[in-house]
Simulated assay, not measured.
Amino acid sequence: MAKIGRLSTKDTVLLLCDMQEKFRPNIFQFTNIVSNAARLLQASRVLGIPPILTEQYPKGLGPTVPELGAEDLKAHAKTSFTMMIEEVQKELEALGNPKRAILCGIEAHACIACTTFDLLEKGVEVHIVADAVSSRSQTDRLFALSRLKQSGAYLTTTEGVLLQLVQDAKHPNFKEVLTAAALFHHIGLDFMGLEETSLPKCL
């Protein structure tokens, strides 16, 4: 049976990549990226999905921005572009090696790309949250997403992730997840730099 990329709260991990202070003035749509990632983090706590946080060379690039709401998480410092450093792999092993990863953060063509490649090679299903991922340039961002889709990652949105995870309006945490996540629809189109009808063709 073909893989269809259905999300589930079981065997899933949320990966939060390098949303740090020094990136703030340079990343395309940084505020929206962090806002959407924060919504995913809040929802993951409600649904019991474990989050993992990294920081790229925090001595030079600063700490994770406070609006992500990740102060209670241990930030794994790294210099490599991939999140799959030894400490993160040990944390994944302690979680039973989740089969699916929801990935957000920066930069799309660097750390997000390298992390995705490493996860795919390990047989992990990767769901890249397009409206919670960015780069310094929109060109790098869009081509990175297209390239990662070619490699087998699934592209999705914050709202798409949340609705897939709860599946049903009768889900006991449905209202809580949507409230925590401040569900929305129209942040994506201007941000993506695409018309709604052209998005599937381009990505």
Rank of each mutant, 00 (worst) to 15 (best):
Q20Y: 07
I187E: 15
M192G: 09
K122Y: 02
I106K: 01
G105D: 06
V166E: 04
L165P: 01
Q164P: 03
P63W: 09
T82F: 04
K59A: 13
E55P: 11
D131T: 07
T179N: 11
R39L: 00
S35C: 13
Q167T: 15
D11C: 06
Q89D: 10
L92M: 15
L203M: 14
Y154T: 04
Q42L: 08
G69V: 02
A101I: 02
S151E: 15
G48S: 07
L178G: 10
T12E: 04
N97M: 10
E195D: 14
Q164C: 00
L162Q: 06
Q167G: 00
D72W: 07
G123S: 08
Q150A: 08
S80P: 01
N36F: 05
G160Y: 00
P200K: 11
G48K: 10
L145A: 01
K90Q: 14
A108L: 11
L189P: 05
S8G: 01
A169Q: 04
E107W: 00
G48D: 05
G69Q: 04
I106E: 00
I112F: 03
S137V: 08
D190Q: 14
H171N: 15
T12S: 14
L61V: 08
G60S: 11
G62R: 06
L148S: 09
C104P: 03
F174P: 05
K90L: 12
T116P: 00
D140R: 01
F184L: 12
